[in-house]
Write a protein that binds this DNA or RNA. Structure first.
Length: 919
RNA sequence: GGGCGGCUAGCUCAGUUGGUUAGAGCGCUACGUUGACAUCGUAGAGGUCACAAGUUCAAGUCUUGUGCCGCCCACCA
């Protein structure tokens, strides 16, 4: 960055406007070169506490969007704040291979560009393509992340599908298998016929749709009708379920009917199940165990036969006469036609129902029985003293070992966990972690008709080997499937810290010992259940420890109309575009200020532009401070370079009123901002900073300084600016670092010490400046109301009461700060002709104004009302405190609280009684 | 069907355990170049805090009910 260098070397006047593009890249390089992104290089005492955030790895399917930017802004803010606070701050970067999503993208690309499917290429060649694609997007993502100013420790960068993670995943699988947590079984799973893969429950989405509900009889021999929206599955019915309370059908329960249903022989048992709703349809339900989750459960409970009707390609299986090979839609039409012909169809009606579709491709889900690997969440485990994964994960939240921000998400997490079923972890796709299981003499399923237990108990005649390394010997074939992407990302918090090598015999070492458990997981609320819950379970299993202490959940970034940003809608804002247009700092501010945890954020370019204006304001504040300091203030340097003592020093003599005022405000600001950041109130901290910077420092103190002759003023200006830069740095790292360099500092602001607040100003009469401020504002108001010609310089007389001396001393400010007053006379003490002790201004030959007393009558009423309220309140509380019952029953804490309140109100009342009609 | 959240200025939203006259940014109106900043300055208008009832000395804040919007969960075939 040539310009960056120029500015530093030549020490000329700063440009009028801050141009981020001239500074940002150069500054990021300097940071990176310094090595301080890596906590090992921070100059810290051995016992410095660590502060760790592991970056939720973005999917490598696409470049980053503003949602990622908001994540980066918030996490970088936390990391930079804690780094400055003296923590061993580690922010660990990485990317996610996002198995299904990535494979989908590459498949689509392949089809579009070459007209080929993955099967045309074969597994190996296809995976090569995926890796090619991946490298491209990965590098874009990493570049974007740097553009955001993220202070990530790149030396520890990880990928969910790189070698160390592969090792960790295999080890985890083997451990879980050996503990009996992972098992293989057949279940009805959500099958996407297009993706050719199973989907976890939470990957299924629901769409409201209109469907036809058919009411029909299986055959003439069958005693009553049933209703269904999917007649084609009825080819595999093995039972009819009714509600046990239903009087209409009670007599049939337990009977078995053999029927001829549109040419197919069915053996139907009448069973009772309390989930059957009597009011829906005919109150009787055809049970198809192979093609409905609910029916599968009924089959298990009633020992029913399972007949597979539909295959993995979404077509009717063999053995179903003319229906075989037809799609479900075709078969449905054929069956309905036949029923109609035979006069078995009783009713056809439109109903609303919920269609389950694949969350990736929107294809309707086909529930199918399939052999899969599962994580048993209910298995009682020795390592948990007989508790299950599920129970332990619930405990962690209930005991507040893990805290949620905002709190409401704890409930959502618990609801989810309490209803958690076994987690299907195998996927029929190629891209991902291959399941570390090998089979010998792999047996093909010959019979379409298998009993439920046969399936679950894994009765096939095959040898199974589960291990990190492939087995020795001949004839082994590895499982074709890969693992659910959440299995590897569920281990992200510790697989990135060297597990399993850093965890031997229950003892942590290396990075794991130093940085685990992490402090915060910051992520979007939409993956609370998908991801967060899994990370908690997997960490508990592998390390018997929680993965993070806090979960901070951010919302989605929406466009200015409240719509989700998407490429297809074209309403998305590209982070790189707006960074180029307004600068990274402005983008970061717009994502942090006005954003609260758990709530979605609407963002528009106008908002970002507003913050661009603010960065420029800060720039110009610095510009004024620097160019107005005619002499360099010598600064003491600590031996420790870059970590100077940061306590505000108040050795400066001859402070002006404005100086005292701004320094005290600064104290409060440091305290407030520190507290807010510690409690995840980023938006509030930012607003307080903005208020101080713009409304207090720039509008008043800086303006006042133009008319002060104090020798200390440069020192005060520099001190405030310095501290302000430190406070702002986690929010907008670039412009603050840029100014820091312009101030001729040879350290990096990034590793400066966070300001500490001292109470040095306690008791200083900073309220005096407020008084002057009020006088000035009152004069301005008076002028505006009376439409005095702006150019006209006027004379003013002020009766200052007992503050006359004080006011006189600030004459230069009252005259100069946009009051339009040319001459000012301060008259006497306590001489206000209207109110004793009031401050009174007479602007000569125009009018007379009383400061603060805008509407005397109104003010009197208000004070009276408040007084009455307070009196009532005091009487009530006194009564309460005199009540022996209350004293006896209430906890001491409450009694004390009441007493404190009483004291406070009494003081307030006293103040009120003595109050003048003054601000 | 069950659960959760939202409703505050024209717009986008803050408002920490109930406590002075409910705030900010943008937008709008009028005026304005005074030694950094027009990406600026000064002043101003604008709110029955969705609605109703209740608790309280005091309610945007707590309770109950209603309405609209959104999200999550569920084995409605």
């Amino acid at each position: 960055m040539a310009n960056f260098g120029n500015v530093v070397n030549m020490k000329q006047e700063l440009p009028k406007a801050y141009d981020p593009s001239q500074y940002e890249d150069g500054i990021y390089k300097k940071w990176e070169k310094s090595g301080f992104f890596n906590p090992d290089n921070l100059d810290l005492p051995e016992n410095a506490p660590s502060y760790t955030i592991v970056l939720p790895p973005p999917n490598i399917t696409d470049k980053l969007h503003l949602g990622h930017s908001s994540m980066l802004a918030i996490e970088d803010l936390l990391i930079r704040y804690h780094r400055m606070k003296g923590y061993r701050a580690l922010w660990l970067p990485g990317t996610d291979h996002a198995a299904i999503a990535t494979q989908n993208v590459v498949e689509k690309k392949l089809l579009k560009e070459e007209g080929k499917t993955r099967h045309d290429l074969g597994r190996e060649k296809f995976l090569e393509r995926v890796w090619e694609f991946l490298k491209e997007t990965q590098s874009i993502i990493l570049r974007q992340t740097r553009k955001m100013g993220a202070s990530l420790d790149w030396s520890r960068e990880a990928f969910t599908l790189d070698e160390p993670r592969e090792k960790a995943v295999k080890k985890m699988f083997v451990d879980m298998y050996e503990a009996g947590v992972i098992y293989r079984g057949e279940r009805v799973v959500n099958w996407c016929p297009r993706c050719h893969s199973t989907l976890a429950d939470d990957e299924v989405e629901y769409k409201d749709q209109k469907a036809k509900l058919y009411t029909f009889k299986y055959s003439y021999d069958f005693p009553f009708a049933i209703a269904t929206t999917r007649p084609e599955t009825k080819l595999g019915d093995t039972a009819v379920a009714v509600n046990p309370k239903d009087k209409r059908y009670k007599k049939y329960i337990g009977k078995i009917y053999e029927v001829d249903f549109v040419g197919i022989k069915l053996k139907l048992k009448i069973i009772a199940d309390r989930h059957v709703e009597m009011d829906f349809g005919t109150g009787a339900l055809g049970v198809t165990p192979a093609h409905s989750m609910a029916d599968w459960q009924m089959a298990e409970a009633n020992d029913l036969e399972i007949i597979k009707v539909i295959g993995e390609d979404g077509k009717i299986n063999n053995n179903f006469l003319e229906y075989s090979g037809k799609t479900v839609e075709q078969a449905r039409d054929m069956i309905i036609e036949k029923l109609r012909k035979n006069n078995l169809l009783e009713k056809e009606e439109e109903i609303e129902n919920n269609l389950s579709v694949c969350y990736r491709c929107n294809t309707p889900i086909e529930p199918l029985p399939s052999k899969q690997w599962f994580v048993n969440v209910n298995k009682k485990l020795k390592r948990f003293n007989g508790k299950s994964l599920k129970e332990k994960a619930i405990e962690a939240a209930k005991n507040k070992e893990i805290k949620f921000i905002p709190e409401k998400f704890e409930k959502r997490y618990l609801d989810w966990m309490e209803n958690l079923h076994d987690w299907c972890i195998s996927r029929q796709i190629w891209f991902g972690h291959r399941i570390p299981v090998w089979y010998r003499n792999k047996l093909k399923v010959k019979s379409e008709k298998l009993k439920v237990e046969d399936k679950i108990n894994n009765l096939e005649n095959q040898e199974i080997y589960v291990g990190v390394e492939p087995p020795e010997g001949e004839g082994w074939a590895q499982d074709e499937d890969t693992l659910d992407t959440w299995f590897s990302s569920g281990m992200w918090t510790f697989s990135t810290l060297g597990w399993p090598d850093t965890f031997k015999n229950g003892k942590k070492s290396g990075d794991l010992a130093r940085f685990y458990p992490t402090q915060v997981l910051e992520t979007g609320y939409e993956i609370l259940t998908l991801w967060v819950s899994r990370m908690i379970m997997m960490s508990l299993f592998a390390l018997r420890e929680i993965p993070f202490e806090n979960v901070y959940l951010h919302g989605m970034v929406l466009d200015k109309y409240g719509k989700k940003m998407s490429k297809s809608k074209g309403n998305g804002i590209d982070p790189l575009d707006v960074i180029e247009k307004f600068g990274t700092d402005a983008v970061r501010l717009s994502l942090v200020i006005g954003n609260t945890p758990g709530n979605d954020l609407r963002l528009s370019e106008e908002k970002i532009a507003g913050f661009r204006n603010f960065t420029n304001k800060l720039w110009n504040i610095a510009r004024y401070v620097l160019q107005s300091s005619k002499f360099k203030v010598p600064r003491p340097r600590n031996a420790q370079r870059g970590r100077q003592s940061s306590k505000l020093q108040f050795k400066i003599q001859n402070l002006t009123l404005a100086d005292e005022w701004i320094l005290e405000k600064l104290q409060n600001l440091i305290k407030d901002v520190s507290e807010d950041l510690g409690n995840y109130r980023f938006s509030q901290a930012g607003e307080k900073l903005r208020e101080f910077t713009w409304s207090d420092f720039a509008d008043w103190h800086l303006e006042a300084s133009k008319f002060e002759k104090s020798e200390a003023k440069q020192q005060v200006l520099l001190m405030v600016l310095e501290n302000l830069l430190k406070l702002w740095h986690p929010f907008m790292p670039f412009v603050t670092e840029a100014i820091w360099r312009e101030m001729d500092k040879d350290s990096l602001l990034m590793v400066e010490k966070w300001p500490a607040f001292a109470k040095a100003t306690a008791g200083k009469p900073s309220g005096n400046f407020e008084l002057i401020k009020n006088i000035i504002i009152a004069i301005r108001n008076a002028r505006a109301e009376n439409k005095i010609e702006p150019a006209r310089k006027i004379k003013a007389v002020i009766y200052g009461g007992k503050n006359a001396k004080l006011i006189k001393s600030q004459e230069h400010l009252i005259k100069n700060l946009r009051t339009g007053i040319k001459e000012l006379n301060i008259v006497g003490t306590g001489q206000c002709p209207v109110h004793k002790d009031a401050i009174y201004i007479a602007v000569a030959d125009i009018e007379i104004y009383l400061i603060g007393a805008v509407d005397e009558e109104k003010e009197k009423i208000r004070i009276k009302k408040e007084r009455e309220n307070l009196e009532k309140l005091i009487v009530n509380t006194e009564k309460k405190l005199a009540d022996k019952e209350f004293i006896k029953k209430a906890p001491a804490r409450i009694v004390k609280q009441e007493k404190d309140k009483l004291k406070l109100w009494q003081e307030e009342l006293a103040k009120l009684k003595g109050q003048l009609i003054l601000p």
